[in-house]
Design a protein around this nucleic acid. Structure first.
Lengths: 108, 108
DNA sequence: TTGATAGTTCGAAATTTTTCGAATTATAAA
DNA sequence: TTTATAATTCGAAAAATTTCGAACTATCAA
């Protein structure tokens, strides 16, 4: 079993999070997850990009604290760390929603 | 008189804004302005950086839509485009405040 | 056990960003 | 007019990021 490195809430840093979001591919992945929850790599709405490049972007998102993986068989399912992000940077998640923001309920 | 290029509210783009904020020097400038309003270059809390480098960072912040200049004599005073940013990305400004966020009143 | 699938890691090339000093513009003050 | 100050622009060098294919790990299914 592999150990995964995720920053704690206290370790999250706004500059790193912005740097992670400052790339169009990564922004798209994050907005895709913000809109519709958990997805594996093939569910991200990105095209014309090799799988190693996609892995690289996923790593940056994970290390910034934006996303977390869940391993199920061969697949890695990713989701936004909604509650953690909301507690550390209130309002951030809301900013990332593309549509129907009124349908999104923030965590308690 | 020089014409300055500022993106309109509609032209503002979240990815570009995040990219602009994803650098520690630029984040510091923006948080400095968010905390205390208008400042010229010498008022930014950045050190060990040449003036041409500082100009480069200011340009990126301006072109992303985060800041606007006001020319007075030799000096260029910069401020956050608070109202414009709040109308385009509600909550963004609040995220950038380092201290005393409760004392900050968002524009109408 | 073999083969297929999902994804990561490695190393190198391509591209972009950051940085600087020198030259330049614009204003103000002597 | 000359000098000083505030800041930008211009190249070019240095540093960081993005990208890819190949090799690898792990799981599942035949």
């Amino acid at each position: 079993m592999k150990t995964l490195i995720l920053p704690s809430i206290a370790e999250m840093n706004l500059t790193s999070i912005c740097a992670a979001l400052g790339d169009p591919i990564r922004m798209k992945i994050v907005q895709c997850l913000a809109d519709s929850g958990e997805k594996n790599c093939s569910g991200f709405e990105v095209e014309h990009i090799s799988k190693s490049t996609l892995s690289h972007h996923i790593k940056i998102l994970r290390e910034s604290g934006l996303i977390q993986p869940r391993f199920q068989g061969k697949e890695h399912f990713y989701s936004l760390r909604t509650a953690d992000l909301e507690s550390r940077f209130p309002g951030l998640i809301h900013l990332l929603l593309r549509e129907k923001p009124e349908s999104f309920v923030l965590p308690e």
